[in-house]
Design a protein around this nucleic acid. Structure first.
Lengths: 202, 202
DNA sequence: CGTATTAGCGGAGCGTGCTCCGCTTACATG
DNA sequence: CATGTAAGCGGAGCACGCTCCGCTAATACG
């Protein structure tokens, strides 16, 4: 938990220790109580004042993001592995499933996670990380002509995020993901290389 | 504002009057302050206690839903009109655009609107209304072979809802909607009625 | 009209998120 | 080691959402 190294000059020793303790306690609290965990209680359990918590993590999102940063990073790394293991569309599908499962596991943190995905705050690098991972997966599909080159990966990520935000159960989320995936597929073969032989009315 | 007629025995006269006043005041408050409008303030301005507000509208969603019920009903009615006016896919696209605009206008009410869309509460008929409207639009497309018959309209509505929840700006929401629409399209024309005449490599 | 019943009322009260600012103390410097 | 200073601390305080329950008065009925 000491792997946090904020930019700028290093934190004062006591501040760093408080920071680390907050993260540890917050991780436990979120796991135990869900996103509804009281920030006041977290601060108290970590032995700091509520003011200290808010100075270090100005928004609930920033705390959540810090707690789950490693997990998200793992999700992003998985994209590269999947590309090596499966056909592009399968890799894309599998990654989206992992994304859904990750978000689903954070049950009750939906409002917070929306903040993570949409915040303008540059310090929240998570969004950019996810976006890169998805772009990599899409590119692999585009190179093989299986995925349309039109859609912006960011839009796709947001749609995926929207799905996980609103879907109550995993099964529905996966069906919705399929819908999205279908929308991503390139229309093959190209229309102008085709002709109708047995048209039964248009 | 007196068009509210809850099921069961009619409200006592004073209760009905309070109910109506709450709706009027809430509509103004939401328009003025967004979803963040203080329910306490609304109750006070309507001249009732906070307890009364919560008894009549147990959740924030239920109040929001009541305030916007008419608007949503109009949106649903528009589906039928659009079917008469435009080709199925265009009608579907146009309706989705109206949906996006409606939600966008309710800026800041995203958490609340998610509740309206996902709540299990049967008294919130809004979701069913929207679902029916969307199903009608999809059916029109299915009959002409333009829309895939696979996807459940509810899933589609949820995806649309997810898009409007997470998209910050209208343009992005519309691009995401296009993605969804693309996922809904039937693969036309049927593959087994086609033959490649001028394939330039797959 | 008089009365009983019960639908309806309203605010005290608890726990929440978040801000603000006077106090404390770790660290650089001599 | 002594000291100045600014980085850091922490909780009082405010407004909020929501619940609970004793009080009030509208209505049904004789």
């Amino acid at each position: 938990m000491s792997d946090e190294a904020p930019e700028g000059r290093p934190l004062r020793a006591d501040a760093q220790s408080n920071h680390d303790r907050l993260l540890t306690v917050a991780a436990q609290a979120f796991a135990r109580d869900g996103a509804a965990a009281s920030l006041r209680a977290i601060a108290q359990e970590a032995g700091v004042g509520i003011g200290t918590l808010y100075r270090r993590f100005p928004s609930r999102e920033s705390l959540v993001e810090a707690v789950y940063r490693n997990e998200v990073a793992g999700l992003c790394r998985a994209a590269d592995e999947l590309i090596g293991e499966a056909a592009p569309l399968d890799a894309l599908s599998a990654w989206m499933e992992r994304f859904v499962d990750f978000m689903h596991a954070k049950h009750g943190m939906k409002d917070t996670l929306r903040g993570v995905l949409t915040s303008e705050d540059d310090r929240l690098r998570t969004r950019a990380l996810l976006c890169d991972a998805l772009a990599t997966l899409m590119d692999a599909g585009i190179r093989e002509g299986l995925v349309s080159s039109g859609p912006d990966p960011y839009d796709v990520l947001m749609t995926l995020g929207g799905i996980t935000l609103i879907a109550e159960d995993r099964a529905r989320a996966l069906r919705m993901t399929d819908l999205l995936l279908n929308g991503l597929r390139a229309r093959t073969p190209p229309l102008d290389s085709l002709v109708v032989v047995d048209g039964r009315d248009g």
